[in-house]
Design a protein around this nucleic acid. Structure first.
Lengths: 149, 149
DNA sequence: TTTGTTTCTATGTTTAAACATTTAATCGAC
DNA sequence: GTCGATTAAATGTTTAAACATAGAAACAAA
């Protein structure tokens, strides 16, 4: 559906201006669908994101600050997100050997199991809802990378 | 900059999967820059969005539910957003004539003045940061509209 | 009119985001 | 070594988001 219809705005001044709103609107749209999936597992979207980051380095640990660097939403508080994951048994914390200011975080096997449960549902959504071909998607990626300079 | 470098992930399984993350990441990126601009005027991004919606109908009023329909983030609470705008003098509320359940909301002249102040700054950002041509932007818009079905 | 149902907005409550500050560890200059 | 500066993570506090629920008005049927 065209953005104009979805937000009931008749026209945009430029395609570039529309693209800005379109990116924000589409991100909200994707986010709200994924949110429903995460909710079944009592996870938030940033928490899921951190789990994926941790799995990407497993079995190596990541410090809180390096998690923050890799997060999609860099404004949110990595320390508190790790807190939640540790509470739920999906991650473990230990003080870093070389620098006692730093904290090493590792995903647990429970965390890995959880990711394996959630992933098929997310893929189903991507496949069912996204009509994009790989070429279209590649064009989007190129353009978005350009937007961010 | 490519998404892989920004979030320090080496590869993606498909372009489509990358496109999902790219949309979310880019929306956060745009949002955080705009947030800095809005902050100078003590507005939040959803509040700015509502003001734009109200101006779009001025001098006609909009009910709270029709504002909600047009909002980019449809999950947030339009009633409380209008509250904040009324507090600040940027909007006015009055009960609807033919249906006393509904509430008519109109942008004030102070609200319109505020929008005129903020807009040039947003346009500066769009022009300075966005390297996209109109054709590129049009392609993004087409693809994002496709993503949402 | 009355009763039940739906619609529109407001409100209550729990949780997280945003932002600043604190505490502890490290580093560098002297 | 000491001192100040810097960095990493945690914590405190204020504000808003998320979600459910309530309350008032409209509507429809008996």
């Amino acid at each position: 559906m065209k953005l104009e219809e979805e937000i009931k705005q008749s026209k945009f001044e430029t395609e570039r201006q529309k693209a800005i709103l379109n990116v924000i609107y589409t991100a909200n749209w994707i986010g709200s669908i994924q949110h429903k999936i995460f909710k079944k597992y009592k996870l938030t979207s940033p928490q899921y994101n951190v789990l994926r980051i941790l799995r990407g380095k497993f079995p190596d640990p990541l410090t809180v600050s390096s998690i923050q660097e890799r997060m999609l939403d860099k404004m949110s508080n990595a320390s508190r997100l790790v807190d939640k994951l540790v509470e739920k048994g999906y991650a473990e914390r230990s003080t870093c050997m070389y620098d006692r200011r730093q904290v090493d975080v590792v995903i647990t096997s429970a965390g890995q199991k959880l990711l394996k449960e959630i992933e098929p549902e997310l893929l189903d959504f991507h496949n069912a809802e996204m009509v994009l071909t790989e070429q279209d998607a590649a064009a989007v990626n190129e353009a978005l990378d350009k937007i961010r300079g």
